[in-house]
Design a protein around this nucleic acid. Structure first.
Length: 369
DNA sequence: AAATCCGACAACCGCATCGGA
DNA sequence: TTCCGATGCGGTTGTCGGATT
């Protein structure tokens, strides 16, 4: 593989850099001189370089990267060696797409800590800060751009909590149901991350409790402003999946929420799996002072507005979530029409009992809810 | 079939922090 | 206390391959 040198911001150490040496620190000047003497390589690593690095670390262990760079025969900086090892060669690096669990964890932790990639990565075994950072920039920020909101804004965070996270939970629940069906006699234990996530689901930062917590402040008076329930909303859910879309068009980024059909709701309900779900919502509504709330016709919510309209409106995403919660109280109406194509059918809807079921599943995995 | 676009990811850079001399 | 080298972190950019035109 050929190595780039010279041109461009990554090309590095040319005449321009030398000319800038007047304002360089002593450390930088020394580095520059060393680089020039050693004809340092840049760009993609070759197989031979990888082998050299791995062999050296196998013999001498990690750390002391500058010494490693000098002694290993690699014409790379210590920094470059460290990065290559930590982000690519280290044996416990996990390859492949991030699982829904991992994506959910990233969203949760980022909402807590912001761009503390290294700290977030510590909670995702085998994943690197670089990988998480790339995920955030390519997937999450892309959605924010297309919604024309800032990725760090409250509005976008609400959208993530209310639409993105539930979808990830759905994927997780769906996967678990499939696994259970595949080996009904001896279901496998849930992945360790489930426990972590279930614990979070039981904490104030979970997507299921957050909306209840937010609802306490939404509208200022400890409840949802009445107009929220009459705000015409058509939800365009955010797609958390690795991009398989073929167009960068505004609608392509917001596919309908898939249905929960795999969960066989009829069976779950008849088997009593949903018992207690109503109680969750009842108590939530009670805490909001919304006992006996009449939400009117579900058709109210099948309107022509877009998520963007909604985001631009005065109500918050958490208010929407509260509304969905209230729907569970009111009999399980469908509130989120997945209808950018105008089709309100085809299972592209979320019901409150579906959300609750996902929450219950998390509780089963981790005993959290 | 060729050109262009775009997403994903590897890699680099600058700066901050830490620890030892 | 200060200096300096090593290391870590977050932002940014280049490259590549697949999809689209």
């Amino acid at each position: 593989m050929s190595q780039r040198r010279g041109a461009g911001p990554m090309g590095g150490l040319g005449a321009a850099a030398a000319a800038a040496s007047a304002v360089m620190s002593k450390q930088q000047q020394q580095q520059l001189e060393a680089d020039e003497m050693m004809e340092l390589r840049r760009g993609p690593w070759t197989l031979e370089e990888d082998n050299l690095l791995m062999n050296y670390i196998a013999c001498h262990g990690e750390g002391r990267w500058n010494l490693l760079a000098r002694c290993s025969g690699l014409k790379r900086t210590g920094k470059s060696c460290r990065l290559r090892w930590l982000n690519y060669l280290k044996p416990d690096i996990k390859r492949g797409n991030l699982t829904p669990e991992e994506q959910l964890l990233i969203l949760e932790l980022h909402s807590k800590w912001g761009n503390r990639w290294s700290r977030i990565a510590q909670h995702l075994p085998g994943r690197t800060d670089n990988e998480i950072k790339n995920y955030w920039r390519t997937r999450v920020q892309k959605q924010a751009r297309q919604l024309k909101v800032d990725a760090n804004s409250t509005v976008f965070r609400d959208a993530v909590r209310c639409y993105w996270m539930p979808r990830l939970l759905e994927k997780m629940a769906s996967t678990t149901v499939h696994q259970a069906a595949a080996s009904a006699a001896d279901p496998p234990p849930p992945p360790p991350l489930h426990h972590h996530l279930a614990a979070m689901a039981a904490s104030s930062s979970s997507p299921f409790d957050t909306h209840l917590q937010h609802a306490d402040t939404c509208g200022g008076g400890g409840g949802v402003p009445p107009n929220v329930y009459h705000h015409h909303v058509q939800v365009h859910p955010i797609d958390p999946s690795p991009s398989t879309s073929t167009s960068a068009g505004s609608t392509a980024a917001l596919p309908p929420v898939p249905c929960f059909s795999e969960l066989r709701w009829d069976q779950l309900q008849s088997s009593g799996e949903l018992d207690g779900a109503a109680g969750v919502f009842d108590s939530a509504l009670g805490s909001l002072g919304l006992d006996g709330l009449d939400l009117g016709s579900p058709a109210e919510y099948y309107s022509d507005s877009t998520l963007l309209d909604y985001l631009n409106s005065s109500c918050t995403g958490s208010a929407m979530m509260t509304m969905m919660t209230a729907s569970g109280h009111g009999g399980g109406y469908n509130y989120c029409g997945g209808a950018m194509d105008g089709d309100h059918h085809g299972g592209s809807t979320w019901r409150a009992d579906e959300l609750c079921q996902a929450a219950r599943k998390l509780g089963e995995w981790g005993g959290g809810i």
